[in-house]
Design a protein around this nucleic acid. Structure first.
Lengths: 153, 153
DNA sequence: CTATATTAAGATATAATACTCTTAATTCTA
DNA sequence: TAGAATTAAGAGTATTATATCTTAATATAG
């Protein structure tokens, strides 16, 4: 499985918003500070999520972004689809276009099963649950593993 | 799951070599023609596989490349590791560095299980088996789906 | 109505990946 | 030994992904 950085950023922001559990707007500046992500880049990512209907945004003072619906109704999968597209779990196995039922690639069947399991997992993981798990969205890596510090989760 | 194009090219070449089931060298030119992959690019990819010990190469007339060991002893996973590195199945879940047993990310446990299943699948898929499945390594996509023609499998 | 806070959109810059070309090294054959 | 066949290695270009900056649009507050 491989998600783009944009996607990871979007997920982290989504989880953080869910954990705030507030109905008012949170500025992107605030989010980018807490997550230690470039404000500019995060802005772009959140714009995608807004266009996809996952977030609601508001300009001007007291503006910002917030979840467009309850955190129980937004899944990990929703975010992935909004940012990285549906190809990841629609395309065959190892993202081998041209593969299909007609002429399945060698791993088609096995992969189909796994794909379903993964989809189920990602659909089941709502932002609420993820926020509940209380994972330090804010930079656990720093404390644990100095080597792997590509930022994130 | 997401593999680089280099990796897909390498896999296709490996499967094709396995299907030829010959002990003599096959020129990269030949492989690139059959697979419809740029000769130059394929050369680079196969060089990586040679360095990783998956292929054996030989220069000069009657030279080329061949599998360095029996096709039963080279797995899909071997090729992926040689080209895309081990990160794919070593890193956590959704490639979130910083995640570990100490401070697992929200999907850590679930993903660990899936990761093992996927690893098992990829380890079990030897080039021999893949070649046996007789999948047209040579461009099935063209016949089936004109839209998806990014080359491949 | 003006100044300020904020997201949206577009333009630019940098980095990673994909792809191409050229030259060097090796080996065979005649 | 000369010439041809072939991979290896390095350099160059193209495309895509990541990241930054600037300007525009929208909203609030005073």
């Amino acid at each position: 499985m491989y998600l783009s950085k944009s996607c990871i950023h979007g997920l982290r922001a989504g989880i953080l918003l869910a954990s705030k559990n507030s109905n008012s707007f949170v500025t992107i500046k605030q989010l980018s500070n807490e997550l230690d992500i470039s404000f500019y880049f995060l802005t772009k990512v959140l714009q995608q999520m807004t266009k996809a209907g996952l977030l609601e945004s508001y300009k001007g003072p007291n503006g910002g972004v917030k979840l467009a619906r309850e955190s129980t109704l937004i899944s990990f999968m929703d975010v992935v689809e909004a940012i990285d597209g549906k190809a990841l779990l629609e395309d065959c196995a190892l993202s081998l276009p041209g593969c299909g039922i007609l002429k399945p690639c060698p791993m088609h069947d096995q992969w189909s099963v796994m794909k379903q399991e993964i989809s189920a997992m990602l659909n089941d993981a709502t932002l609420e649950k993820l926020a509940e798990m209380n994972y330090a969205v804010k930079n656990p890596g720093a404390e644990i593993d100095q080597l792997h510090k590509k930022s994130f989760f």
